[in-house]
Design a binder for these strands. Sequence first.
DNA 1: ACAAATGATACAAATATGGTATCATTATAC
DNA 2: GTATAATGATACCATATTTGTATCATTTGT
Lengths: 139, 139
Amino acid sequence: MKLITRDTDYAIRALCYIMKGGNKVVSSAEMVSKLHIPRPFLRKILQVLNKKGVLSSTKGLGGGFKASTPPDKIFLVDLIEIFQGPLRLNECLLRNMLCPHKKNCCLKKKIDAIERYVISQVRSIRIADLLQKKGGRHG
Amino acid sequence: MKLITRDTDYAIRALCYIMKGGNKVVSSAEMVSKLHIPRPFLRKILQVLNKKGVLSSTKGLGGGFKASTPPDKIFLVDLIEIFQGPLRLNECLLRNMLCPHKKNCCLKKKIDAIERYVISQVRSIRIADLLQKKGGRHG
DNA sequence: ACAAATGATACAAATATGGTATCATTATAC
DNA sequence: GTATAATGATACCATATTTGTATCATTTGT
């Protein structure tokens, strides 16, 4: 089970790279060569971040991406939800129908509690927290 | 992202069913009809639980499965690991090689902390805890 | 006009999940 | 000892998700 899938991870790396460069416009080509992410895949990810308003893009020669949100306003949970959908540990479903004992299933209750904790944690982690020199994510 | 996959969930249901019946020998056919789990899938799951020593089986007419471990000695984390492998939230891998900044990646550290919490929680949940009349999992 | 960049979108490979199918083996009842 | 009811072993398959690839259109700076 992965809390973070590869696209989310790549998105984090790209955002950190852009932020560390002082949020100047960075082309996908530069990020590909520095971060070693497959080019078409990274481009797709950047386009998603653009559409979601995390990044803004400029086309044409000298174009690229910059952040449209400061790094202390971008939370890990947001990126997870963009690329992986709502963060849920608890998909206790029988086929298509819901479990008939859903209401008072005590396992569900316990997992819900774990889920709430995990969400509260990833909600507290900001891109800004990942920019320290030690412990960076530059490649 | 699912903390518990369907096979783990079915395994829990089967174990609870057996335990609630006082740990008498129960056939897979009975559990299929009572728990509404696809027969070949449940059989496969029961065979795994047998091999792992959680259940013991008897063949032939009147045969079936009973628990070989009391319900307060079977932990959720064990079942998760049997069916889903080691519980890891943190599969921060670049292709096949490890991330070069693994050592002091601060995102990894944060996720590790979350992971430790989740593991401690699922380690604390026993089958016995899921057997209360209210909040049961009988179907 | 050309080149360098992104936008949009469709396709594809690899893996994980959820499930089937079949035949062999064992044990009980008669 | 044979029929039957059960599990054991194992191979196969369908679907969804993840992780990409490929292509062409559009925009912009020189």
